[in-house]
Simulated assay, not measured.
Amino acid sequence: MPMLSALTVAAFTLSLLVPPPGFSVEVLSVSGEGCPPGTAQVAPSPDNQAFTVTYSDFLVQGKGSEAKKTCELQLRVNHPADYTYAVEATDYRGFAALDAGTTGIKKASYHFVGHGPTRHITNTYAGPMSDNWQATDKPDPGKLVHGPCKQKKPLRIVVELRVKGKSGFMSMDSTDSSVSAKFKLNWKKC
């Protein structure tokens, strides 16, 4: 598993009071300009109720043209065969410094490999801005897409940061270096 400094954190928490026994997380792949080799890591919490994805180099800067960076993670959430899960809610945070006439965009999607996307979210921030940003994605409970029960398909998470316009940057970090994207999981008995 790659090692790195903690600038951005994504914590995944369960919506059950107690996760199913045997819950763990395995990193299958990490790729993209937003997370070059060695700049992303996943670690489950000691109580198995969360896991953390840490990024150390997810920043996009534009000056007079459009610039973007993406990070794609493929994770296997290991759990008993009689359970499955869905991404119930996601909180993203970061920092943006955007001049007037500049726009910062954060896009995210996640799905189970081999199945259609479970959800897309786009958040837009307009300059002038020099501040932390936060975005929450919480679909209607009836629109949650749970993974297949018998096949443990990897969870694919793709996050994109984009800057368009005069000048500025956007990052999945903050001035205090403790910003997170939190993915809450909804467990279901098969």
Rank of each mutant, 00 (worst) to 15 (best):
T175Q: 10
E33N: 03
W187P: 05
V87T: 06
H146K: 09
K166V: 15
K107P: 00
K143T: 06
Q74G: 00
E33P: 05
H111V: 02
K106T: 08
S15M: 03
P20T: 02
E26C: 03
F23S: 08
G142P: 00
F112G: 05
Y125E: 03
K153M: 13
G165Y: 09
S29W: 00
K152I: 10
I157D: 00
N132H: 14
A126R: 07
T175N: 12
S65T: 15
D140C: 02
V9P: 00
L75G: 08
V60K: 03
S167F: 14
K69L: 09
S109H: 05
V159I: 13
V53F: 11
G101F: 07
D57T: 11
P117L: 08
G101P: 04
H115C: 09
L98M: 05
A126E: 11
A81V: 08
A96R: 09
A97V: 11
E88A: 15
S174F: 02
V9C: 13
K153F: 12
S167V: 14
K188L: 14
A11Y: 14
A100N: 02
T124F: 05
G32N: 01
R156V: 13
A43T: 15
L7A: 06
T52C: 10
S24D: 15
K182N: 14
L14E: 05
G22K: 12
C190F: 07
K184I: 03
N132L: 09
P139G: 07
N132V: 14
T70K: 13
V9F: 15
Y55H: 12
A181P: 00
A50I: 11
Q134G: 10
L185Y: 04
S180G: 09
V9I: 14
E66M: 15
K153L: 15
L16D: 04
L144G: 01
A96K: 04
A50N: 12
L16P: 00
C35T: 03
P46D: 13
D173Y: 08
A108L: 02
P139N: 11
P141R: 00
D176I: 10
A108C: 04
P154F: 10
G101L: 04
L17V: 05
A40K: 01
M172F: 15
M1S: 13
H115K: 13
D131R: 08
I105G: 02
R162D: 03
V60M: 07
P80T: 03
E160I: 10
S5I: 13
P148A: 15
K188G: 00
K138T: 13
P141K: 02
T122R: 02
G34E: 03
C71S: 03
T118R: 06
F23Y: 12
D131I: 04
K69M: 08
R156S: 14
R156D: 01
L17K: 07
G64K: 09
N78M: 11
E66Q: 14
A50E: 11
T102C: 02
S178H: 15
V179W: 09
I105Q: 07
R119M: 04
V158H: 07
M172D: 01
G114V: 11
L98F: 05
P46I: 12
G34F: 06
D176E: 12
R119Y: 08
K63C: 05
